[in-house]
Amino acid sequence: MTYKLILNGKTLKGETTTEAVDAATAEKVFKQYANDNGVDGEWTYDDATKAFTVTE
């Protein structure tokens, strides 16, 4: 299944996707991606759209 990450960081904005077996796996991938790019903020998840959002 495809999951999307929407980044609303102070220095990094954009979107990326990942293929994962479930939302928990996608969340781990996205949190590592955000951490690697220096984005740390409030996380939300919308199951209807399979989209995670992180806002700094």
Rank of each mutant, 00 (worst) to 15 (best):
A24F: 10
V21P: 15
T25Q: 12
T53N: 04
E27K: 09
A51D: 03
K10C: 13
Y45P: 00
T18C: 15
T2F: 09
W43V: 02
Y33T: 03
N37R: 14
Q32W: 05
T11M: 12
T44A: 09
G9A: 08
D47L: 07
A26Y: 00
G41M: 02
G38K: 07
A26R: 00
N8H: 10
A48R: 11
Y45Q: 01
Y45V: 01
A24D: 10
W43I: 03
D36M: 11
F30A: 01
N35T: 14
G9D: 03
L7Q: 02
N35R: 15
A20C: 08
G38E: 05
K28A: 12
T2W: 12
Y45C: 00
A24C: 13
D46L: 04
A24I: 10
V39L: 11
E19K: 13
L7S: 03
V54M: 05
A23M: 12
E27S: 06
K50S: 05
T44R: 07
D46N: 08
T16D: 03
T18W: 08
K13R: 12
G41W: 06
E56I: 10
A48K: 12
D36F: 08
A20N: 03
K50G: 06
Q32K: 14
E42G: 05
Y33D: 01
I6V: 09
E19Q: 14
G38Y: 06
Y33S: 02
E27T: 03
L5G: 02
L5E: 03
N37A: 13
Y3C: 04
T2N: 07
T16R: 13
A24L: 10
T2L: 13
V39C: 04
K4I: 13
I6A: 03
T25N: 07
V39G: 02
N37F: 14
E56A: 07
D22C: 05
Q32A: 11
E42T: 13
G9H: 07
T53M: 09
T16Y: 15
Y3W: 06
A51Q: 14
F52N: 00
V39E: 02
T53Q: 05
T2S: 07
M1L: 13
D36E: 13
L7T: 05
A26M: 02
T53L: 05
E56T: 08
M1C: 14
T11S: 12
A34I: 06
T16H: 14
A20V: 04
E42W: 13
T16M: 15
Y3D: 04
D36T: 09
T55I: 09
F30W: 01
T25W: 07
G14Y: 13
E42V: 14
A51F: 06
A48Q: 11
D46R: 03
N35E: 14
A26N: 00
E42L: 12
T44E: 10
K50R: 14
T53R: 05
K4F: 11
G38Q: 07
E27F: 15
N35I: 15
A20M: 02
K4S: 07
V54C: 08
T17P: 02
L5A: 02
D47G: 08
N8Q: 09
F52Q: 00
K4P: 03
F52G: 01
W43S: 00
Y45T: 00
A23L: 09
T17A: 07
T55D: 06
E19L: 14
T44H: 10
G41C: 03
K4T: 14
T44G: 06
T17H: 10
T55L: 06
A20H: 03
T44I: 08
T53K: 05
Q32C: 06
E56P: 06
Q32M: 09
D22L: 04
E42M: 11
T17C: 12
G14R: 11
G9C: 14
T11C: 15
D47S: 12
L5D: 03
A51L: 13
F52L: 00
V54T: 02
T25K: 05
K31N: 04
K10V: 13
V39S: 02
A24S: 09
T25H: 12
A24W: 09
T2A: 06
T16G: 04
V29D: 04
G14H: 12
T2G: 05
V29P: 00
T25R: 05
K13G: 05
V29I: 15
T2R: 13
M1F: 14
Q32G: 06
F52K: 01
L12H: 11
K31F: 05
T11N: 13
A48H: 09
F30L: 05
A48I: 12
G14N: 08
T49Y: 07
Y45A: 00
M1K: 13
Y3I: 04
V54K: 00
G14I: 14
A34Y: 02
V54Q: 01
A26G: 02
V29R: 10
T17F: 14
G9K: 04
A26I: 02
G38T: 04
L12F: 15
K13P: 05
L5Q: 01
Y33P: 01
A34L: 11
A23Q: 11
K28D: 06
V54L: 11
K10S: 10
E15C: 15
T18H: 07
F52I: 01
Q32Y: 05
K13T: 10
G9Q: 04
A51M: 13
V21H: 11
T17D: 05
E56K: 04
E56S: 07
E42H: 12
A26W: 01
T17W: 14
V29Q: 08
E15W: 14
E27L: 15
A23G: 04
N35S: 14
A26K: 00
V21N: 12
V29M: 10
T18Y: 12
A20T: 05
G14F: 14
T17Q: 09
G14T: 13
M1P: 12
T18F: 11
V54S: 01
K31P: 01
T44N: 07
A34Q: 01
K50M: 11
V21M: 12
T25M: 11
T53D: 02
T53V: 06
A23V: 12
N37M: 15
D47H: 11
T17K: 07
F52D: 00
K50A: 05
I6F: 11
Y33N: 02
F30R: 00
T17S: 11
V54E: 01
